[in-house]
C-alpha cells in the first residue's frame, strides 16, 4: 500500500470520527489539519461544528504538532469542554509530557491517533512525494508508528518500516568525534544565522511559560538582540529547559526559517539523560522529569 492510500483511509476515518464526536457533544472542538491553498499543503484548523468535519485531512504534509494549541501559551482555543485532537505518535508523546506537567487533564482530551508512516521533513515544497529523501529525520528514527493510548485510532495496516539511516545518531556521532574547537565553530556558524524569530519557541509544546526568561530585561539573563552572544545563550537555555521534557517532535528544527539543526541539541540531551538517569520523555505520564527529581546515588564523579 502506498502512503497516499494509507493516508486517505486515515483521513476518511478522522473525518467520520470528528463528525461523530462533534455531533454527539463528546467534544467542543476538534484540532486537526486541513488543506491550504498550495498544492499538497496542509495547515492546522480548529473546528467546532460537525458539518465542518469534512474539511479534515491527513497527508505527509500534516507536519505540525498540534499539541501546542492546547497549552496555556495559546489562548485562542475554546477553554470549555473536551477538545478533540489529531496526533501522530510523536505528537502524542508531547501530550503525555503535558499531562505529566499538569498542563492538561486526560479527561478533557479526546485523542484521535494517526497510524503514521512518516511526514515530510520540510514543507518549503509541500507537494513533493514522501520518500526516503524527503521524509523527516525524526521519522527515520521512529519506532512507534501506532499511537498508544489514544481514544480513537483508525484501523489501518501499516507496512513494515523501511530501514533508514538514523541521521541524528550519525550527526551526533560526527560532532562528538570533533575537537571542542571544531564543535564550537560548527555551532557558532549555525547560531550566527539565528534572527530570533522565536519560531522554535512558539511551536514547542513545552515552551508554555507565560513570560519567557529570554523576554525579560530585569534582570536580563539572555541578550535579546540577534547577535552571536545572545543567540548562543538563547539556544543553550532552550536546550536546557527542554532537557528531560522534549520527546522529539522536532518541530523546532522543522520551523526554523534559517535551518538551524535545533533538534540535534534536544536529541543529544535526551540521550545523555537516558544514560545518566535512565529516563526518557514521552512514554508515560509522570509527575517529575529527570531534572525535577533526584536519586541520592546519582553519579557525582565530575564533582570534586
Amino acid at each position: 500500500m502506498t502512503t497516499e492510500i494509507i493516508y486517505s483511509a486515515v483521513g476518511e476515518a478522522i473525518r467520520t470520527e470528528a463528525e461523530r464526536v462533534l455531533a454527539d457533544g463528546t467534544v467542543a472542538a476538534v484540532v486537526g489539519y486541513t488543506m491550504a491553498r498550495r498544492k499538497g499543503s496542509a495547515q492546522p484548523v480548529v473546528l467546532t461544528k460537525p458539518e465542518e468535519a469534512n474539511q479534515l485531512i491527513f497527508s505527509a504534509a500534516c507536519v505540525n504538532n498540534l499539541a501546542v494549541y492546547l497549552t496555556k501559551a495559546k489562548k485562542e482555543l475554546p477553554r470549555e469542554g473536551r477538545i478533540g485532537i489529531v496526533v501522530k505518535s510523536c505528537d502524542l508523546k508531547a501530550l503525555v509530557g503535558l499531562l505529566g506537567e499538569s498542563q492538561l487533564k486526560r479527561d478533557s482530551l479526546y485523542i484521535i491517533g494517526v497510524p503514521c508512516v512518516g511526514v515530510l521533513g520540510s514543507t518549503l515544497q509541500p507537494s513533493v512525494e514522501l520518500n526516503a529523501e524527503t521524509v523527516a529525520d525524526k521519522c527515520r528514527e521512529c519506532d512507534d508508528r501506532m499511537p498508544q493510548g489514544a481514544d480513537f485510532v483508525p484501523t489501518v495496516a501499516l507496512p513494515a518500516s523501511p530501514a533508514l539511516e538514523k541521521k541524528y545518531a550519525v550527526e551526533i556521532a560526527r560532532l562528538e568525534a570533533m575537537t571542542p574547537a571544531e564543535r564550537w565553530s560548527y555551532w557558532q556558524e549555525q547560531f550566527s544565522k539565528c534572527i530570533k524569530c522565536y519560531a522554535c519557541r512558539q511551536v514547542c509544546p513545552f515552551c508554555f511559560c507565560e513570560q519567557c526568561l529570554c523576554d525579560r530585561n530585569k534582570p536580563q539573563m539572555v541578550e535579546g538582540t540577534p547577535r552571536p552572544a545572545g543567540n548562543l545563550a538563547w539556544h543553550l537555555v532552550r536546550a536546557m529547559h527542554l532537557a528531560g521534557r522534549c520527546a522529539g517532535c522536532a518541530e523546532c528544527e522543522r520551523v526554523c526559517p534559517m535551518d538551524i539543526p535545533l533538534n540535534l541539541l534536544n536529541r543529544k540531551m535526551s540521550r545523555e539523560l537516558k544514560e545518566l538517569f535512565h529516563s526518557e520523555a514521552g512514554f508515560e505520564v509522570r509527575e517529575k522529569g529527570p531534572l525535577a527529581e533526584y536519586n541520592e546515588q546519582d553519579d557525582q564523579s565530575f564533582i570534586k
Binding site: Q43, P44, V45, V46, V68, Y69, K74, E76, L77, I195, K196, C197, Y198, A199, R201, Q202, V203, N217, Q220, E223, G224, T225, V255, P257
Partner: peptide, 28 residues
C-alpha cells in the same frame, strides 16, 4: 479569528519579508 487562530505568534514571516521594517531599540 478563522484566519489567524492557528498563528503561533513567531516573527518568522516578518523577518523573512523584504518589506517589513519594524524594529526595537534596546540598551545592552
Amino acid at each position: 479569528d478563522g484566519i489567524a487562530t492557528r498563528c503561533v505568534g513567531c516573527g518568522s514571516c516578518a523577518f523573512v519579508c523584504p518589506a517589513c521594517h519594524c524594529f526595537d531599540i534596546v540598551d545592552e
